[in-house]
Computed example of a mutant assay.
Amino acid sequence: MAKKPKIAFLGTGGTISYTGRNSLDVWEYMDFGTRLSVSEILSRFPEVEDSADIIPIDVRQVSSSGIIPADWLALASKINEIASSNTELDGFVVTHGTATLEETAYFLNLTVKTDKPVVIIGAQRPSSGFATDAGSNLLSAVRVASSKEAHGYGVLVVLNEEVQAAREVTKTSTLRLETFQTPDIGMLGYADPDGKIALYRKPTRLHTSNTIFNIENIKELPVVDIVLSYAGANGTAIDAFIESGTEALIIASLAPGLPTPDQVLKITSAIKKNIKIIYSTRAGSGRVLRRESMVSEGIISADNLNPQKARVLAMLALTISKDPEKIQHIFDTH
Protein backbone atom coordinates (compact mmCIF):
# COMPACT_ATOMS: atom_id res chain seq x y z
CA MET A 1 0.00 0.00 0.00
CA ALA A 2 1.32 3.44 -0.95
CA LYS A 3 2.24 5.76 1.87
CA LYS A 4 -0.36 8.45 2.49
CA PRO A 5 0.70 12.06 2.03
CA LYS A 6 1.04 14.04 5.26
CA ILE A 7 -0.99 17.26 5.44
CA ALA A 8 -1.26 19.90 8.16
CA PHE A 9 -4.89 21.00 8.36
CA LEU A 10 -5.28 24.41 10.01
CA GLY A 11 -8.72 25.74 10.89
CA THR A 12 -9.65 29.40 11.30
CA GLY A 13 -13.45 29.13 11.21
CA GLY A 14 -15.84 30.34 8.53
CA THR A 15 -18.86 28.73 6.89
CA ILE A 16 -17.11 25.40 6.44
CA SER A 17 -16.89 25.07 10.23
CA TYR A 18 -20.59 25.81 10.86
CA THR A 19 -23.58 23.57 11.38
CA GLY A 20 -26.98 25.15 10.91
CA ARG A 21 -30.31 24.51 12.61
CA ASN A 22 -31.16 21.92 9.96
CA SER A 23 -30.03 20.81 6.51
CA LEU A 24 -31.94 23.65 4.80
CA ASP A 25 -30.32 26.35 6.93
CA VAL A 26 -27.71 27.49 4.42
CA TRP A 27 -28.05 31.24 4.93
CA GLU A 28 -28.80 32.00 8.61
CA TYR A 29 -26.41 29.48 10.17
CA MET A 30 -24.01 32.27 11.20
CA ASP A 31 -26.72 33.68 13.50
CA PHE A 32 -28.09 30.44 14.93
CA GLY A 33 -25.63 27.64 14.21
CA THR A 34 -22.72 26.10 16.10
CA ARG A 35 -19.04 25.83 15.16
CA LEU A 36 -17.02 22.71 14.57
CA SER A 37 -13.38 22.09 15.42
CA VAL A 38 -11.03 20.84 12.71
CA SER A 39 -11.38 17.27 13.99
CA GLU A 40 -15.17 17.55 13.97
CA ILE A 41 -15.13 18.81 10.38
CA LEU A 42 -13.00 15.84 9.36
CA SER A 43 -15.35 13.41 11.11
CA ARG A 44 -18.15 14.55 8.81
CA PHE A 45 -16.13 13.73 5.72
CA PRO A 46 -14.22 10.46 6.37
CA GLU A 47 -13.17 10.28 2.71
CA VAL A 48 -10.72 13.12 3.40
CA GLU A 49 -8.84 11.21 6.09
CA ASP A 50 -8.83 8.14 3.83
CA SER A 51 -6.85 10.17 1.29
CA ALA A 52 -4.11 11.56 3.56
CA ASP A 53 -2.52 11.51 6.98
CA ILE A 54 -4.11 14.66 8.42
CA ILE A 55 -2.65 16.65 11.31
CA PRO A 56 -5.55 18.78 12.69
CA ILE A 57 -4.63 22.19 14.13
CA ASP A 58 -7.21 24.66 15.45
CA VAL A 59 -5.87 28.20 15.00
CA ARG A 60 -9.00 30.38 15.22
CA GLN A 61 -12.78 29.95 15.37
CA VAL A 62 -14.08 33.16 13.84
CA SER A 63 -16.20 34.40 10.98
CA SER A 64 -14.04 35.80 8.20
CA SER A 65 -15.68 39.18 8.81
CA GLY A 66 -13.85 39.11 12.15
CA ILE A 67 -10.39 38.38 10.73
CA ILE A 68 -7.90 41.19 11.43
CA PRO A 69 -4.28 41.79 10.34
CA ALA A 70 -2.99 40.35 13.62
CA ASP A 71 -4.62 37.06 12.61
CA TRP A 72 -2.71 37.13 9.30
CA LEU A 73 0.57 37.51 11.17
CA ALA A 74 -0.30 34.70 13.59
CA LEU A 75 -1.39 32.32 10.82
CA ALA A 76 1.64 32.97 8.62
CA SER A 77 3.95 32.55 11.61
CA LYS A 78 2.24 29.28 12.52
CA ILE A 79 2.66 27.88 9.01
CA ASN A 80 6.32 28.97 8.91
CA GLU A 81 6.91 27.36 12.29
CA ILE A 82 5.34 24.06 11.21
CA ALA A 83 7.14 24.09 7.85
CA SER A 84 10.55 24.52 9.48
CA SER A 85 9.98 21.93 12.22
CA ASN A 86 8.20 19.21 10.25
CA THR A 87 10.06 18.55 7.01
CA GLU A 88 8.05 15.37 6.32
CA LEU A 89 4.91 17.35 5.57
CA ASP A 90 3.72 17.32 1.97
CA GLY A 91 1.58 20.43 2.25
CA PHE A 92 -0.90 22.59 4.14
CA VAL A 93 -4.65 23.13 4.01
CA VAL A 94 -6.22 26.15 5.72
CA THR A 95 -9.97 26.54 6.18
CA HIS A 96 -11.27 30.10 6.13
CA GLY A 97 -14.49 32.04 5.77
CA THR A 98 -15.03 33.17 2.19
CA ALA A 99 -15.72 36.87 2.89
CA THR A 100 -12.05 37.80 3.44
CA LEU A 101 -10.44 34.58 2.22
CA GLU A 102 -8.74 36.31 -0.72
CA GLU A 103 -7.01 38.82 1.57
CA THR A 104 -5.69 36.18 3.94
CA ALA A 105 -4.58 34.04 1.00
CA TYR A 106 -2.65 36.92 -0.56
CA PHE A 107 -1.00 37.83 2.75
CA LEU A 108 0.14 34.22 3.16
CA ASN A 109 1.32 34.22 -0.46
CA LEU A 110 3.62 37.13 0.42
CA THR A 111 4.87 35.92 3.81
CA VAL A 112 4.90 32.12 4.04
CA LYS A 113 8.39 30.71 3.51
CA THR A 114 7.85 27.31 1.99
CA ASP A 115 7.66 25.93 -1.55
CA LYS A 116 5.27 23.20 -0.45
CA PRO A 117 1.62 23.73 -1.41
CA VAL A 118 -0.42 25.94 0.92
CA VAL A 119 -4.09 25.66 -0.03
CA ILE A 120 -6.82 27.91 1.34
CA ILE A 121 -10.40 26.70 1.18
CA GLY A 122 -13.82 27.70 2.36
CA ALA A 123 -17.40 26.77 1.65
CA GLN A 124 -20.48 28.61 0.46
CA ARG A 125 -22.75 26.28 2.42
CA PRO A 126 -22.18 25.01 5.97
CA SER A 127 -21.01 21.48 6.59
CA SER A 128 -24.51 20.50 7.71
CA GLY A 129 -26.22 22.07 4.70
CA PHE A 130 -28.16 20.29 1.97
CA ALA A 131 -25.78 19.78 -0.99
CA THR A 132 -22.93 21.38 0.93
CA ASP A 133 -19.73 22.08 -0.95
CA ALA A 134 -17.63 21.67 2.21
CA GLY A 135 -16.63 18.03 1.73
CA SER A 136 -15.81 18.36 -1.96
CA ASN A 137 -13.73 21.49 -1.36
CA LEU A 138 -11.86 19.87 1.50
CA LEU A 139 -11.04 16.72 -0.46
CA SER A 140 -9.94 18.78 -3.47
CA ALA A 141 -7.71 20.91 -1.22
CA VAL A 142 -6.04 17.87 0.34
CA ARG A 143 -5.38 16.42 -3.11
CA VAL A 144 -3.85 19.69 -4.32
CA ALA A 145 -1.76 20.07 -1.15
CA SER A 146 -0.53 16.49 -1.59
CA SER A 147 0.43 16.92 -5.23
CA LYS A 148 3.89 17.42 -6.67
CA GLU A 149 2.30 19.49 -9.44
CA ALA A 150 1.40 22.31 -7.01
CA HIS A 151 4.92 22.74 -5.58
CA GLY A 152 6.33 26.18 -6.22
CA TYR A 153 3.00 27.74 -7.22
CA GLY A 154 2.64 29.89 -4.10
CA VAL A 155 -0.51 29.93 -2.03
CA LEU A 156 -3.53 28.48 -3.83
CA VAL A 157 -7.27 28.88 -3.38
CA VAL A 158 -9.36 25.80 -4.14
CA LEU A 159 -13.15 25.77 -4.28
CA ASN A 160 -15.60 24.21 -6.72
CA GLU A 161 -12.78 21.92 -8.00
CA GLU A 162 -10.98 24.97 -9.42
CA VAL A 163 -7.41 25.94 -8.54
CA GLN A 164 -6.77 29.70 -8.37
CA ALA A 165 -3.71 31.84 -7.58
CA ALA A 166 -3.93 33.72 -4.27
CA ARG A 167 -2.75 37.00 -5.82
CA GLU A 168 -5.41 37.08 -8.49
CA VAL A 169 -8.54 35.35 -7.22
CA THR A 170 -11.52 37.25 -5.82
CA LYS A 171 -14.97 36.49 -4.47
CA THR A 172 -17.57 37.53 -7.06
CA SER A 173 -20.93 36.35 -5.70
CA THR A 174 -22.64 36.27 -2.33
CA LEU A 175 -24.13 32.77 -2.63
CA ARG A 176 -23.09 30.94 -5.82
CA LEU A 177 -20.74 27.97 -5.47
CA GLU A 178 -18.56 29.26 -8.31
CA THR A 179 -18.03 32.55 -6.47
CA PHE A 180 -14.20 32.55 -6.64
CA GLN A 181 -12.98 33.76 -10.01
CA THR A 182 -9.80 35.22 -11.50
CA PRO A 183 -10.75 38.18 -13.72
CA ASP A 184 -9.04 38.51 -17.11
CA ILE A 185 -6.37 35.85 -16.54
CA GLY A 186 -8.43 32.85 -15.41
CA MET A 187 -7.87 29.93 -13.09
CA LEU A 188 -4.66 27.90 -12.90
CA GLY A 189 -6.37 24.58 -13.41
CA TYR A 190 -8.61 21.88 -11.96
CA ALA A 191 -8.78 19.43 -9.07
CA ASP A 192 -10.90 16.86 -10.86
CA PRO A 193 -12.76 13.84 -9.38
CA ASP A 194 -10.23 11.40 -10.85
CA GLY A 195 -7.70 12.81 -8.38
CA LYS A 196 -5.56 14.44 -11.07
CA ILE A 197 -4.37 18.00 -10.42
CA ALA A 198 -4.32 19.57 -13.88
CA LEU A 199 -2.49 22.93 -13.91
CA TYR A 200 -2.10 24.94 -17.10
CA ARG A 201 -0.20 28.09 -16.14
CA LYS A 202 2.07 29.27 -13.33
CA PRO A 203 2.04 32.56 -11.35
CA THR A 204 4.93 34.82 -12.39
CA ARG A 205 4.96 37.41 -9.58
CA LEU A 206 7.17 36.91 -6.52
CA HIS A 207 5.59 34.75 -3.83
CA THR A 208 6.32 32.74 -0.67
CA SER A 209 10.05 32.00 -0.36
CA ASN A 210 10.99 34.51 -3.08
CA THR A 211 9.41 37.67 -1.62
CA ILE A 212 11.34 40.38 0.22
CA PHE A 213 9.11 40.18 3.28
CA ASN A 214 10.10 38.71 6.63
CA ILE A 215 7.48 38.87 9.38
CA GLU A 216 9.57 37.33 12.17
CA ASN A 217 10.02 40.65 13.96
CA ILE A 218 6.78 42.36 12.92
CA LYS A 219 4.43 42.74 15.86
CA GLU A 220 1.91 45.04 14.18
CA LEU A 221 1.27 45.98 10.56
CA PRO A 222 1.05 49.60 9.37
CA VAL A 223 -2.45 51.08 9.13
CA VAL A 224 -3.71 51.26 5.55
CA ASP A 225 -7.29 52.15 4.60
CA ILE A 226 -9.45 52.05 1.48
CA VAL A 227 -11.34 55.03 0.03
CA LEU A 228 -14.08 54.38 -2.53
CA SER A 229 -14.59 56.74 -5.46
CA TYR A 230 -18.16 57.26 -6.66
CA ALA A 231 -20.13 60.01 -8.38
CA GLY A 232 -19.98 63.08 -6.13
CA ALA A 233 -17.49 61.69 -3.58
CA ASN A 234 -16.30 64.72 -1.62
CA GLY A 235 -13.19 63.50 0.14
CA THR A 236 -14.61 63.45 3.66
CA ALA A 237 -13.47 59.86 4.10
CA ILE A 238 -9.89 60.85 3.28
CA ASP A 239 -9.90 63.46 6.05
CA ALA A 240 -11.37 60.95 8.49
CA PHE A 241 -8.76 58.29 7.75
CA ILE A 242 -5.93 60.79 8.09
CA GLU A 243 -7.35 61.96 11.40
CA SER A 244 -7.50 58.35 12.63
CA GLY A 245 -3.81 57.80 11.88
CA THR A 246 -3.66 56.00 8.54
CA GLU A 247 -0.23 55.65 6.94
CA ALA A 248 -1.44 54.99 3.40
CA LEU A 249 -4.66 55.12 1.43
CA ILE A 250 -5.79 52.79 -1.30
CA ILE A 251 -8.05 54.75 -3.64
CA ALA A 252 -10.64 52.43 -5.17
CA SER A 253 -10.85 54.85 -8.05
CA LEU A 254 -13.21 55.17 -10.96
CA ALA A 255 -11.86 53.14 -13.88
CA PRO A 256 -9.30 53.46 -15.39
CA GLY A 257 -7.76 55.17 -12.33
CA LEU A 258 -9.49 58.46 -11.56
CA PRO A 259 -10.68 59.78 -8.20
CA THR A 260 -13.29 62.57 -8.21
CA PRO A 261 -12.07 66.20 -8.38
CA ASP A 262 -12.91 66.78 -4.70
CA GLN A 263 -11.00 63.63 -3.76
CA VAL A 264 -7.99 64.82 -5.77
CA LEU A 265 -7.83 67.99 -3.64
CA LYS A 266 -7.82 65.89 -0.47
CA ILE A 267 -5.26 63.49 -1.92
CA THR A 268 -2.90 66.38 -2.65
CA SER A 269 -3.26 67.49 0.96
CA ALA A 270 -2.65 63.93 2.20
CA ILE A 271 0.58 63.62 0.20
CA LYS A 272 1.88 66.78 1.87
CA LYS A 273 1.30 65.02 5.21
CA ASN A 274 3.44 62.09 4.02
CA ILE A 275 0.47 59.77 3.54
CA LYS A 276 1.22 57.26 0.78
CA ILE A 277 -1.41 57.10 -1.96
CA ILE A 278 -2.02 54.03 -4.10
CA TYR A 279 -4.50 54.03 -6.99
CA SER A 280 -6.45 50.83 -7.53
CA THR A 281 -9.83 50.70 -9.24
CA ARG A 282 -13.32 49.67 -8.23
CA ALA A 283 -13.80 48.04 -11.67
CA GLY A 284 -12.57 44.64 -10.52
CA SER A 285 -10.15 43.97 -13.35
CA GLY A 286 -7.45 45.62 -15.41
CA ARG A 287 -4.28 47.58 -14.58
CA VAL A 288 -4.11 51.15 -13.35
CA LEU A 289 -1.55 52.76 -15.64
CA ARG A 290 0.85 55.12 -13.88
CA ARG A 291 0.39 58.46 -15.63
CA GLU A 292 3.05 61.20 -15.57
CA SER A 293 0.99 63.19 -13.08
CA MET A 294 0.99 60.22 -10.70
CA VAL A 295 4.77 59.83 -10.99
CA SER A 296 5.41 63.52 -10.31
CA GLU A 297 3.15 63.49 -7.24
CA GLY A 298 4.52 60.22 -5.88
CA ILE A 299 1.24 58.33 -6.38
CA ILE A 300 1.66 54.57 -6.68
CA SER A 301 -0.19 52.30 -9.09
CA ALA A 302 -1.62 49.07 -7.68
CA ASP A 303 -1.09 47.41 -11.08
CA ASN A 304 -4.02 44.98 -11.46
CA LEU A 305 -4.58 44.34 -7.74
CA ASN A 306 -8.10 45.05 -6.50
CA PRO A 307 -8.38 47.50 -3.56
CA GLN A 308 -8.44 44.84 -0.82
CA LYS A 309 -5.39 43.05 -2.25
CA ALA A 310 -3.57 46.38 -2.79
CA ARG A 311 -4.11 47.14 0.91
CA VAL A 312 -2.46 43.85 1.90
CA LEU A 313 0.61 44.53 -0.22
CA ALA A 314 0.82 48.17 0.91
CA MET A 315 0.84 47.13 4.57
CA LEU A 316 3.80 44.86 3.96
CA ALA A 317 5.56 47.27 1.60
CA LEU A 318 5.53 49.95 4.31
CA THR A 319 7.54 47.64 6.55
CA ILE A 320 10.29 47.78 3.89
CA SER A 321 10.24 51.40 2.71
CA LYS A 322 8.32 54.68 2.77
CA ASP A 323 9.76 55.78 -0.58
CA PRO A 324 7.04 55.85 -3.30
CA GLU A 325 9.36 54.58 -6.03
CA LYS A 326 10.53 51.65 -3.92
CA ILE A 327 6.92 50.86 -3.02
CA GLN A 328 6.02 51.05 -6.72
CA HIS A 329 8.75 48.51 -7.47
CA ILE A 330 7.23 46.19 -4.89
CA PHE A 331 3.82 46.52 -6.57
CA ASP A 332 5.42 45.85 -9.95
CA THR A 333 7.08 42.63 -8.82
CA HIS A 334 4.76 41.03 -6.23
Rank of each mutant, 00 (worst) to 15 (best):
F9H: 08
L10Q: 02
G14A: 13
G14K: 11
Y18F: 14
Y18L: 15
N22G: 13
V26S: 11
V26Q: 06
W27I: 07
M30W: 13
M30P: 09
L36G: 06
S37V: 12
S39W: 00
I41C: 07
L42Q: 07
L42S: 06
F45V: 11
E49I: 08
A52K: 06
P56M: 04
I57L: 05
D58R: 06
D58W: 04
I68M: 12
P69M: 03
P69L: 02
D71W: 03
I82Y: 03
N86C: 02
E88M: 01
G91R: 01
F92Q: 03
V93Q: 01
T98I: 07
L101I: 01
E103R: 08
T104V: 08
T104G: 10
Y106E: 09
Y106K: 05
F107I: 04
N109F: 02
D115Q: 14
V118F: 01
G122I: 05
A123S: 15
P126I: 06
A134V: 07
S136Q: 13
N137D: 06
L138E: 02
S147A: 13
K148C: 00
K148V: 05
V155C: 10
V158N: 02
V158M: 04
V163L: 01
Q164I: 00
V169L: 06
R176K: 14
L177V: 12
T179G: 10
Q181P: 06
M187T: 14
A191M: 14
D192G: 12
P193F: 11
P193M: 11
P193Y: 11
D194Q: 14
D194H: 13
G195D: 05
I197H: 02
A198N: 14
L199I: 12
K202M: 10
K202W: 07
P203L: 08
L206K: 15
T208M: 01
S209D: 04
N210P: 00
I212K: 11
N214A: 10
E216W: 01
I218R: 09
K219I: 00
E220W: 00
L221S: 07
V223P: 08
S229H: 03
Y230W: 13
G232D: 07
A240W: 04
T246S: 14
I251V: 13
T260G: 12
D262E: 15
L265A: 15
K266T: 05
T268M: 06
K273Q: 15
I275N: 05
R282G: 05
A283H: 10
G286A: 03
R290C: 07
E292T: 04
S293F: 13
M294G: 09
E297F: 02
I300S: 05
S301E: 10
S301N: 11
D303G: 06
N306T: 09
N306V: 08
V312H: 09
A317E: 14
I320A: 03
D323C: 04
P324H: 00
K326R: 10
Q328K: 12
I330A: 08
F331A: 03
T333E: 05
T333A: 00
